[in-house]
Amino acid sequence: MKVLQDDTLAYRFEYPAATASGRPLPLVFSRKPERYSSAAPLTADARQRIVCELADLLDAVTVSVTVGPPAGMLKGRAPEAWSARQVAEQVLIDRSTQRTTTGQRVSLNSVEAAAAETRDDGTTYFLYEHVSQGSPTLRTLQLETYRHALAVTAVRPGLDGSPFLYTLNMSCPQEIWEDVRPAFERSVASFRLLPTTNAYVAPDKDPWRFF
């Protein structure tokens, strides 16, 4: 395992350098850690943004951290009232670009399991496993493929006290799921929101500043 720590948004996690069978996972940055305002949006509304991403192109393994305000069923409700499944479903919907004929966004992910736990830092973390339809990869050229993922979401208030969701998502093709699952589980278990320092930049500070 390797460690990634970002002081700008104050989070830390471990990520795998190899699979359970010992095969190397050469994850490299496709997006280096950055502030929320300059991060790439996942969808046109620019609500949830990718603040960090690593990828292994050969095995199609991705590790990403996204940040964004709550929406849908979570918006306007206290985080203490959220269930793990509600968090999982809303985060996945908010990541999706698929829409119905009425314009409502829908998720193409199936939530397999969801749970909440309070860790040693006193923060509640929402953990969930999900599966989605994927695309052909360098190793799998089948037209119909699936991706399996583990994710964890935690909540931190912005400058004005409104909540922001910090999500670590780790996904891979279904074919290598069992080989990477132990490392993914260790990664999501290691995810922490850190105490803020002078280097910290809240997501809602100058949200449209690009540098």
Rank of each mutant, 00 (worst) to 15 (best):
D160Y: 07
Y200Q: 02
E14S: 14
F13N: 07
P182H: 08
D204P: 01
M1V: 14
S107T: 15
P70N: 10
A10V: 01
T43F: 14
L74D: 13
H148M: 02
P79N: 05
Y166K: 05
D179W: 02
D7I: 03
A189V: 11
P70Y: 04
V201L: 05
H130Y: 12
V87E: 10
A202I: 00
R31F: 10
D120F: 09
T19C: 04
E89Y: 12
S96R: 07
D7F: 06
L42F: 09
L57Y: 12
V67F: 03
A40P: 03
R77H: 11
A40Y: 04
D206M: 10
A113Q: 13
R99W: 02
T153Y: 04
T66R: 05
W177F: 03
K75Y: 10
P195V: 04
V131N: 11
T62K: 05
S110I: 13
T153F: 05
L159W: 00
A55S: 14
P163A: 10
E80H: 15
T97I: 15
A60I: 00
L4T: 00
E53F: 03
Q104K: 09
I93S: 10
A115Y: 11
Y128V: 13
L9A: 11
V155S: 13
Y15H: 06
P182E: 05
T124V: 15
S64M: 14
T153L: 04
P173C: 06
A88H: 13
L108R: 14
L54E: 01
V152D: 06
P207L: 05
E129V: 05
V111G: 07
K2Y: 12
R77N: 15
A84R: 09
A116Y: 10
S38I: 02
F191S: 08
S37E: 02
A88S: 10
A149N: 00
R105T: 15
R139I: 15
R139N: 13
T196L: 01
T145Q: 04
A17P: 07
A44N: 05
F191G: 09
V152Y: 07
Q5C: 10
Q98C: 12
A46K: 03
L54T: 02
V180I: 09
D204I: 00
S30D: 13
A46T: 01
V65C: 04
E34V: 10
